[in-house]
Design a protein around this nucleic acid. Structure first.
Length: 298
DNA sequence: CAGCTTACCTGCCGGC
DNA sequence: TGCCGGCAGGTAAGCT
């Protein structure tokens, strides 16, 4: 499930394969793959003939500026992937198990040309569950206006811890709800929220406005820590839905302390990990390390 | 207006 | 064996 570490892994893999490449053709194989204002025709028209200058990220969003000042905007949703069939451009990349991939519902094909070397390549956007998609952001090279509401993420050098703590203290809701609110702090999804809460020994239903500053700082520090460790492992893969641009899985799933670990002993105290429903989602926690607060906010 | 719910979508899995 | 409900979950629109 792509959260910040998975999206950053994809960004790092995409950058050397897109930067400096000119789009020569676009093929959209499912209308839902292209979102927002552009439409299929507008999407292709804005990109064909343009050259990517890089790949950038905020939270779970990616954008790829082109030399016109516009940008291609991408979100992986639950199952989006960028993949490159073997083109000989990068002979060291791992060969894919299967190609074409098994029936992805969304498929967008970008044919690319490296004008410097004459090499051609193909970039595919694939998405089984169709929650992801691409769009064009007009004038969005620096920061797409579509992302104006997305807060900086904890790995952003300009992340303002004090400002986030102040925002969080105004919220009279369960603290996990805030961790997942991309307008307060971005990049956190269900898996890393649970992992960070466990590391910081905070219960998901703790009223955000009543958390001591030191505990909030500890929680956000835990988010930063688990993000950094997961990034070093290439992200978390439970199945083939999250892979990097070479089709490879991440291995942070082996390091998960609580997510999906029902019945297994807590690594700190040995108490069995439990699964609880919160926000119509699964939450995993250690009932001993993460005590239910006096005034829980569900 | 903050807080909360629902729709979107497909694949998988357990139960009957 | 095959159908059906539940679950997985990021985002945004809609409701209270």
């Amino acid at each position: 499930m792509p959260e910040l570490p998975e999206v950053e892994t994809v960004r790092a893999g995409l950058e050397p394969r897109l930067a400096g490449r000119t789009v020569v053709d676009v093929a959209i194989h499912h209308p839902r793959a292209v979102r927002r204002q552009a439409g299929e025709l507008g999407f292709a028209a804005a990109l064909v003939g343009r050259t990517f200058t890089g790949v950038r990220r905020r939270g779970k969003y990616l954008w790829m500026p082109v030399d016109s000042g516009d940008a291609m905007l991408a979100h992986l949703g639950m199952s989006g992937q960028f993949r490159f069939p073997d083109t000989g451009v990068d002979p060291e990349s791992a060969p894919m198990d299967e190609w074409p991939p098994t029936h992805p519902h969304l498929r967008v094909q970008l044919d690319l040309l490296d004008r410097a070397t004459g090499a051609t390549s193909t970039c595919w956007f694939l998405d089984q569950r169709t929650f992801g998609g691409l769009s064009v952001s007009r004038g969005g090279a620096e920061l797409p206006t579509e992302l104006a509401h997305i807060a900086r993420d904890p790995l952003d050098p300009a992340f303002d811890l004090d400002a986030v703590i102040a925002r969080l203290h105004t919220k009279r809701v369960g603290v996990k709800r805030i961790l997942l609110d991309q307008t307060v702090v971005s990049g956190v999804g269900n898996i890393y929220a649970d992992e960070a809460l466990w590391r910081a020994r905070v219960h998901f239903a703790h009223d955000a406005s009543r958390l001591r500053r030191s505990r909030v700082a500890g929680l956000l520090g835990a988010v930063h820590e688990v993000f950094t460790e997961a990034l070093a492992a290439g992200g978390t893969s439970f199945d083939s839905l999250y892979v990097n641009v070479n089709g490879e899985s991440g291995y942070f799933d082996r390091a998960l302390a609580v997510y999906g670990q029902v019945g297994r002993p807590c690594r700190r105290c040995g108490t069995r990990i439990r699964r609880v429903s919160f926000m119509n989602r699964s939450s995993f926690l250690c009932p001993h390390c993460q005590r239910t607060p006096r005034n829980p906010r569900w």
